[in-house]
Computed example of a mutant assay.
Amino acid sequence: MKEIIVTGACGGFGKAIVKRLLFEGYDVWAVARDIEQLDQCFAGIDCNGLHKYACNLSEESELITMVKTIVSQTGTISGLVHCAGLNRFIPLHLIKQKQMEEMFKIHVYAAITLCSLLSKKGNASAGCSVVLFSSVAAHEGSGGNAVYASAKAAVEGFVRSSAQDFVDRKIRINALVPGDVDSGMFHKFMARLTPEQIEERKKKYPLGFGSSENIADLVEFLISEKSSWITGQCYVIDGGHLVMRS
């Protein structure tokens, strides 16, 4: 059985990804900060392949313990989907180092630490696939978004370099670069906009806003053997948004 870790499992992306991978027959370790939240999120799913694990991804020691625990129970890890994240819109003149650290710990430090752990002998199976998350924010200017955009740009740089470190172990790593997708984080952002601003934003997405299922489709492809010849890539999935802006 292939064992896949999905962080941020209770978010819009994470929940859709967990469900899709379970449907495809994977054993999935759904990871979030709170076990009660996980119980509520997946209350309607009765599946032997679903394993729930509570972990504070900002703490290196908890990441190490999580990987050790999963490996001890499964043998090796076959895939990692790190889609946990947070975003806060902060004007440049109000940015504090604590806010930067909070953002980078989740998006960048946790991703690098998990990948480092997977690179250690005995933790990952040959053919293991890692999927990280960037954002179109790393490719376009947006006021108040400098810290988030910087963290996502760091993810893309890491993917390209770590692919070379991973290749001798037959581990692949790729990233998704989503645009506006109907999810919890998206709803919080949209709540800050006027109806007129929302309509203007819609016009910038020729194929409309995305869905979490669109994201899960691409993640499942990258986790599966169907993408066995792909590594070090960052896939834009944005309904034509960046193309239309160019």
Score class of each variant (00 low, 15 high):
residue 1 M to F: 00
residue 2 K to R: 09
residue 5 I to Q: 06
residue 10 C to K: 13
residue 11 G to R: 09
residue 14 G to P: 10
residue 18 V to R: 07
residue 20 R to W: 04
residue 21 L to T: 08
residue 21 L to F: 10
residue 21 L to V: 11
residue 22 L to Y: 02
residue 26 Y to P: 00
residue 26 Y to G: 00
residue 36 E to F: 08
residue 36 E to H: 14
residue 38 L to Y: 13
residue 40 Q to D: 12
residue 40 Q to V: 02
residue 44 G to S: 10
residue 47 C to F: 00
residue 49 G to P: 00
residue 52 K to G: 01
residue 55 C to F: 04
residue 58 S to Y: 03
residue 58 S to Q: 08
residue 60 E to C: 11
residue 66 M to I: 04
residue 67 V to W: 08
residue 79 G to T: 12
residue 81 V to S: 06
residue 84 A to I: 13
residue 90 I to D: 12
residue 92 L to E: 13
residue 94 L to S: 13
residue 96 K to V: 03
residue 97 Q to M: 06
residue 97 Q to G: 00
residue 99 Q to V: 00
residue 105 K to C: 06
residue 107 H to N: 09
residue 114 L to N: 06
residue 115 C to W: 12
residue 117 L to Y: 04
residue 123 N to A: 08
residue 123 N to L: 02
residue 125 S to T: 12
residue 131 V to S: 03
residue 131 V to I: 12
residue 135 S to P: 07
residue 138 A to S: 15
residue 139 H to S: 12
residue 140 E to G: 03
residue 150 S to H: 02
residue 153 A to M: 04
residue 154 A to N: 03
residue 169 R to G: 03
residue 174 N to H: 01
residue 178 P to I: 10
residue 179 G to R: 07
residue 183 S to E: 08
residue 190 M to E: 13
residue 191 A to F: 08
residue 193 L to I: 00
residue 193 L to K: 15
residue 195 P to S: 04
residue 196 E to H: 09
residue 199 E to M: 07
residue 201 R to K: 15
residue 203 K to Y: 13
residue 203 K to Q: 15
residue 209 F to D: 02
residue 210 G to Q: 11
residue 210 G to V: 05
residue 211 S to F: 05
residue 220 E to M: 05
residue 223 I to W: 03
residue 224 S to H: 04
residue 225 E to V: 08
residue 230 I to N: 11
residue 235 Y to I: 10
residue 235 Y to D: 04
residue 235 Y to G: 01
residue 236 V to Y: 05
residue 237 I to P: 03
residue 240 G to E: 00
residue 242 L to R: 11
residue 244 M to Q: 14
